Simulated assay, not measured.
Amino acid sequence: MRRSIADAIVLLKRAEKQLKTVSERYNSSLKSGLIDPELPGDTNDFLNSCRSALDYLAWDIFTEKCKPGLSEDRVKDLEHKVQFPSKPTRKSFNKAVKDTFPDLKKNSPDIVDVLRDAQCFSTPYNKTWIYALRNLNNGSKHRHLTVQSNQETLYAKDLHVKFGGTSIIMKDSTFVMPKGTVLFDLGGSQITSEDLDNHPAVINMEINLSNDIVFVDIRRPVLSTLEEIYEGSSNVTKRLIPLLS
């Protein structure tokens, strides 16, 4: 087994262990209401492992399937550009494959199919696992650790608030907001989700309240997003290894 493939496998095994650690810190953070100070760093390590595993595979694709037919100058020009593709459209993906992996579509269309499937074109780009990985890892690596914050989701099936001559009725409404956000400001009397149970202005209430920790940059929950990234990275690796062996 070539070194790049072996390294990708090792990195994914490491990512699996890192995800378990992140999950433990995530759950303890939800219970305490405070984000574990180790959580951002552990998350960053996990993202680096997944991203690096995919980039190792991209490098193997380039060196084994594309490099042999290229001139030395062309190889030098492309080597620093090789990375696992993450593109929002089929057009931009096809261009990236053509520009960075010359003749791959002609010589190894099955590999291109795997790379294309990883883009999840049937899903809006900013909702895909590959977008989340690229976005979060870039932010962590080049600027700072991804900012995370407590978030709560409030679903109001039936909520009636009345103060003075003002009456507010909400039905089948969903709010996603930072924990502690003021829902109503009634003449200087502020109501957050924690106040709903006992505040005299609340006339009727049928709600469901859940807490989460989110990536602020992409407005997605931490744990489920990382699980999607791990599953996506693992599936790509399992499909590519037989094609590269």
Results as ranks from 00 to 15, higher is better:
Lys179Cys: 06
Thr153Ser: 09
Thr153Lys: 13
Pro178Tyr: 07
His160Val: 13
His160Gln: 06
Ser167Thr: 08
Phe163Asp: 04
Tyr155Asn: 15
Phe175Pro: 13
Lys162Asp: 05
Met170Asn: 14
Asp158Glu: 10
His160Ser: 00
Leu159Asn: 03
Asp172Gly: 05
Ile169Ser: 12
Ile168Ser: 05
Ile169Asn: 15
Asp158Tyr: 04
Ser167Ala: 09
Val176Ala: 13
Ser167Glu: 14
Tyr155Lys: 15
Phe184Asn: 07
Asp172Met: 03
Thr166Tyr: 05
Leu159Tyr: 00
Val182Ile: 15
Ile168Glu: 09
Gly165Asn: 09
Asp158Asn: 04
Asp158Phe: 08
Ser167Asn: 12
Asp158Gly: 02
Met177Arg: 03
Leu183Lys: 03
Val176Asp: 15
Lys162Phe: 06
Met170Trp: 05
Asp185Phe: 00
Leu154Tyr: 15
Leu183Asn: 11
Phe175Met: 14
Met177Lys: 10
Met170Ser: 05
Ile169Asp: 09
Val182Ser: 08
Lys179Val: 14
Gly165His: 04
Phe175Gln: 11
Lys171Glu: 10
Val182Thr: 11
Phe184Gly: 11
Gly164Tyr: 02
Leu183Tyr: 13
Asp172Arg: 14
Thr153Gly: 15
Ile169Lys: 13
Leu186Ser: 11
Ile168Asp: 13
Thr166Glu: 10
Ile168Gly: 07
Thr153Tyr: 08
Gly165Ser: 03
Thr166Met: 06
Val182Gln: 12
Lys171Tyr: 01
His160Trp: 14
Phe163Gly: 00
Asp172Ala: 13
Asp158Ser: 09
Phe175His: 11
Thr153Trp: 02
Met177Asn: 02
Asp185His: 09
Ser173Val: 14
Ile169Cys: 06
Ile168His: 12
Lys162Leu: 06
Ile169Gly: 04
Gly165Cys: 03
Val161Arg: 02
Lys179Thr: 15
Thr153Met: 14
Lys171Ser: 08
Lys171Val: 06
Leu186Gln: 01
Phe163Asn: 00
Thr181Asp: 02
Pro178Glu: 08
Val182Met: 04
Gly165Arg: 07
Asp158Ile: 07
Lys162Glu: 15
Thr166Ile: 09
Thr174Trp: 01
Thr174Phe: 01
Thr166Lys: 12
Ile169Gln: 15
Lys179Asn: 08
Leu154Phe: 03
His160Lys: 04
Lys162Gly: 01
Pro178Trp: 14
Asp185Arg: 05
Thr166Phe: 00
Lys171Gly: 11
Gly164Thr: 03
Ile168Gln: 07
Lys179Arg: 13
Leu154Val: 01
Ile168Pro: 01
Lys162Trp: 00
